[in-house]
């Protein structure tokens, strides 16, 4: 038993180290003076805020559209359900630059859907809407899958009882299904937001400017070298760690039941 524990702990510990080492290295590598300057750099601040905002819009839009889809996938059997399920997971599997190209070819101004949106004043190339769209495309599986698992964990009999007690399908959804699965949905939304913030490939294809933080890091690295990319990276990592730790803590608070 002892040797078993040692092997398991060593292997697991190694993986944790693989994740932690680069993050720690980046956080410790930034020169304090450069870090101070970067924190005060309006371009960095606006880029980070833009990233957080665009990812939030992407997440909120996908909650509106993705939660109903997740509920349908959890509760109903319909022809092509497996295909829909596969399609949901597809954005995780394809290269994100490819996803960006694909989005450009649908939502670009020269293409049909892009033209339709342009007609009502929404364009995606070079706009916050484009950034959010790219972020949403690549990160929605995290939300939809987590929400679906959350709904699956709700005993359908609770919904049936609610119906016999006089609840309409909508009332049942809002008073039983949603309150019992909101933690999973929130958890998925946090993951989606996080993944959206981190997105580079799809965003860069659709919208290089205004610059989101991952593109800014890339740009500083390309133009000024590692020394100037590190402070932006450190700030982004610290900010994300703080926000996600708080949100995760909120989402995993035990319910009193």
């Amino acid at each position: 038993m002892k040797s078993f524990k040692i092997v398991i702990s060593t292997l697991g510990g190694l993986l944790v180290l693989i994740i932690v080492a680069p993050l720690l290295r980046v956080l410790l590598a930034a020169a304090p003076s450069l870090l101070r300057t970067t924190v005060g750099d309006p371009e960095v601040i606006s880029s980070i805020l833009l990233t957080l905002r665009a990812a939030l819009w992407a997440t909120l839009s996908c909650i509106f559209l993705g939660v109903p889809l997740a509920y349908g996938l959890a509760r109903w059997d319909f022809p092509g359900k497996t295909i829909v399920q596969g399609l949901i997971d597809l954005p995780v599997m394809i290269p994100h630059t490819a996803a960006g190209i694909a989005l450009l070819m649908v939502y670009g101004r020269e293409f049909l859907i892009g033209k339709m949106f342009a007609a009502v004043g929404i364009t995606f190339a070079g706009t916050v809407a484009g950034i959010s769209l790219a972020m949403a495309f690549v990160s929605l599986p995290f939300l939809v899958n987590a929400a679906r698992d959350g709904f699956l964990a709700v005993d359908p009999r609770l919904e049936r009882v609610a119906r016999t007690l006089g609840a309409s399908p909508w009332q049942t959804f809002f008073k039983v299904s949603l309150p019992l699965s909101w933690r999973s949905i929130l958890s998925g939304a946090i993951m989606m937001w996080a993944r959206g913030i981190a997105e580079f490939g799809a965003v860069v294809m659709l919208t290089y400017h205004p610059m989101v933080a991952p593109i800014l890091i890339w740009e500083r690295f390309e133009n000024y070298g590692l020394k100037y990319a590190v402070p932006v990276t450190s700030i982004l990592i610290l900010l994300c760690l703080t926000i996600f730790s708080v949100l995760r803590w909120l989402a995993t608070q035990k319910r009193d039941d």
């Binding site: 005993d155 009999r157 609770l158 009882v161 319910r255 039941d257």
Partner: peptide, 12 residues
């Protein structure tokens, strides 16, 4: 009214 085997009380 229905009462299930495992009662199906709303846990929240």
């Amino acid at each position: 009214g229905i009462v299930y085997q495992d009662y199906a009380l709303f846990p929240h």
